[in-house]
Design a protein around this nucleic acid. Structure first.
Length: 344
DNA sequence: AATTCGGGGGT
DNA sequence: ACCCCAGAATT
């Protein structure tokens, strides 16, 4: 048996029962692929169901408010995916008269759709012979063929794409692509792969070379920044709370949060009330207390946030303050959501 | 070519 | 503490 046959046989016997495997509807496949970018199946599953149910047709997504989409996306991370999803839904609905692109080339024009996702939709929805190369495919191929080229180098990206294209079963691209990814996720896992029951064991280069745990090779350059956030949880006399929307670039774009003062290090209450930013926001006599004496550490992939929530009660009525019920309808970062759930 | 976009889970 | 996840856009 050839490589693709072994994988497809394995897939038919071991595949998980997942909702996006019951359809070839390009809108649904697109939704699933965007949600699953850099995201585990288990984490994305509930979000997929929420989106399919809330927006049954792409037109429903196109006509929705961005805020509603971000709220539904809340907690999933990489929020540009949600904004691009909205943008592309409007593009398909309005510019393409609702007709979903059906070629790799046209799919690639969608915001938020790169080489992987265009190949995935083209193959799964339209059975086009486009090979996908995701993290699973890199790992399976690097191990099986004993390839030491870094998967995130320009040569590696080209090489693995070419190899995957050669291996693709052009008679069944949809199944082959899903088979190799599922195989990587379940059998040829990053840690402790199950080589003992692997149908490719006797021809696997890394297994015979005992280099399973050294492949794939990946250049890593991750510098983690430490940042210090002070959130001002300002509660009016009428129990309203002040909230701002993040604008511009950076983390959590277009999501909401409390007024934020960022500092270069951890500060105490005396340092806080002396800051210009603080005095510009808090102009009335107020009561200030600290919600958490130990800063909360919130870890993002490339930033570690050290966060203090300052509770400020005042009799002043701020214009942009809202009720707690309203607040809970706004899309907020998980950090803020965790606070809201514990404090309120 | 390198960096920046989250959050959760595994080791 | 470090790695990875059905990656893409930006610099």
């Amino acid at each position: 048996m050839v490589f693709s046959e072994i994988l497809i046989n394995w897939y038919e016997q071991n595949k998980r029962d997942l909702p996006w495997r019951k359809t070839t509807n390009p809108y649904h496949i697109w939704l699933s692929e965007i949600i699953l970018q850099q995201t585990r199946v288990n984490q994305g599953l509930t979000y997929y169901n929420k989106f399919v149910n809330t927006f049954p047709d792409i037109k429903d997504l196109a006509t929705a408010d961005e805020e509603k989409i971000l709220k539904l996306w809340q907690g999933l991370g990489y929020y540009s995916r949600a904004r691009n999803l909205h943008f592309s839904a409007k593009y398909i609905t309005n510019e393409l008269n609702g007709k979903f692109p059906n070629t790799y080339k046209d799919l690639l024009k969608l915001k938020g759709v790169g080489d992987y996702t265009a190949s995935a939709i083209a193959s799964i929805s339209y059975n086009k012979p486009c090979a996908v190369v995701d993290g699973n495919v890199y790992r399976v191929l690097a191990r099986y063929f004993g390839i030491k080229t870094a998967i995130n180098s320009p040569e590696g990206i080209k090489y693995f794409k070419k190899l995957a294209t050669q291996l693709l079963d052009i008679n069944n691209p949809a199944t082959f692509n899903q088979a190799i990814m599922e195989f990587g996720a379940i059998q040829c896992k990053p840690k402790n792969p199950d080589c003992n029951t692997c149908p490719l064991q006797n021809s696997c280069k890394a297994f015979s070379n005992k280099t399973i745990d050294k492949l794939p090779v990946k250049h890593k350059k991750l510098t983690i920044k430490n940042r210090f956030f002070n959130y001002l949880v300002i509660i009016n006399a009428n129990n309203n709370i002040i909230i701002n929307q993040r604008t511009g670039k950076g983390i959590w774009e277009n999501l909401y949060e409390f007024p934020l003062i960022e500092t270069h290090q951890e500060i105490d209450i005396n340092e806080l009330i002396l800051m210009d930013e603080f005095q510009q926001i808090i102009t009335e006599k107020s009561e200030i207390s600290l919600f958490n004496h130990k800063p909360i550490t919130h870890k993002l992939s490339h930033q570690h946030l050290s966060v203090k929530f300052w509770i400020i009660t005042t009799k002043k009525k701020y214009k942009n303050s809202i009720s707690l019920d309203r607040l809970k309808k706004y899309p907020v970062p998980t950090l803020i959501n965790n606070f809201i759930e514990v404090y309120f």
